[in-house]
């Protein structure tokens, strides 16, 4: 599967992921001589990041940190590329000084430690070759109280039995917005005139083992808060978005709601 990301610095490399879910400070937590991480909070503690795709949520600590990565690059101990959740001036300067491809805006949960990926800093993407890509369209409806319509998958579907989600379908190779209206009509019988689109939609990524999901999500407001049943789903509920954690969800729903309501 392929994940779009924000370009930070150019270059394309293929390499194995070394992942920290803890923020990293280059100064004091990366040894330029050995390439080893020294941070007990990190899964990478004691491990070398030399020649890896270094994945971490964000940089912290001293702004002198980028010079450590420069030193690592000079000594041949630097990673091959960086993938970060949020890039700041420390990450950006480090990527430039060590001359590494770097992308940001990626949920680090999408990448697993040790797997092989291709980081494309020129176009802003990450390819995970061994993960199958499933492209999905998901429509979320919101009523006048701000509640979001969640629908429960029946026990008969192949994946995510009994899990809650939006109104979804596999995305075909044509206009996703048109398909977003179509899945709503198929499930609920609502037409375009019953729905007013909110925002521009969002792309959320999710992953379960070898299956990856690229979710094109759209939010519509509707005055039809009286909906009681939906074709293809076993149950439905209008849910306050802040309470959504109480509903065991299909992959990517949480992220899609976060992006759509932002």
């Amino acid at each position: 599967m392929r994940i779009h990301a924000r370009r930070v610095s150019d270059g394309i490399v293929r390499g194995k992921v070394a992942k920290s879910t803890a923020p990293l400070s280059f100064l004091g937590e990366l040894d330029a001589n050995t390439g080893k991480v020294e941070n007990p909070q990190s899964e990478l503690n004691g491990r070398s990041v030399t020649g890896t795709v270094l994945v971490f949520p964000e940089a912290r600590g001293s702004t002198v940190g980028p010079y450590v990565l420069y030193g690592a690059a000079k000594r041949g101990t630097a990673p091959l590329a960086m993938v970060v959740g949020t890039a700041d001036a420390i990450v950006a300067s480090a990527a430039v000084l060590a001359n590494l491809p770097c992308v940001s805006g990626v949920d680090v949960a999408m990448l697993h430690d040790g797997e092989e990926v291709i980081v494309n800093g020129a176009e802003g993407s990450i390819e995970i070759p061994h993960v199958e890509e499933n492209r999905v369209v998901t429509s979320l409806l919101q009523n006048e109280k701000g509640q979001v319509l969640l629908l429960k998958q029946p026990g008969t579907v192949r994946t995510y039995q009994g899990k809650w989600g939006g109104i979804s379908g596999l995305l075909e190779d044509r206009d996703p917005v048109a398909q977003a209206y179509e899945v709503v009509e198929a499930a609920l019988g609502l037409r375009r005139e019953d729905l007013s689109p909110v925002g521009k939609g969002a792309v959320a990524y999710a992953r379960e083992g070898g299956q990856g999901f690229v979710i094109h999500a759209y939010l519509f407001r509707t005055s039809r808060g009286d909906l009681r049943a939906a074709k293809g789903y076993s149950e439905l509920a209008w849910v306050d978005p802040l309470q959504r954690a109480q509903y065991p969800a299909v992959a990517g729903l949480d992220r899609a709601i976060t992006l759509l309501l932002a």
């Binding site: 100064l27 330029a32 002198v64 010079y67 030193g71 000079k74």
Partner: peptide, 8 residues
């Protein structure tokens, strides 16, 4: 700064 920064 440490050594890498000094070298830079």
């Amino acid at each position: 700064m440490g050594l890498p920064g000094t070298e830079f």
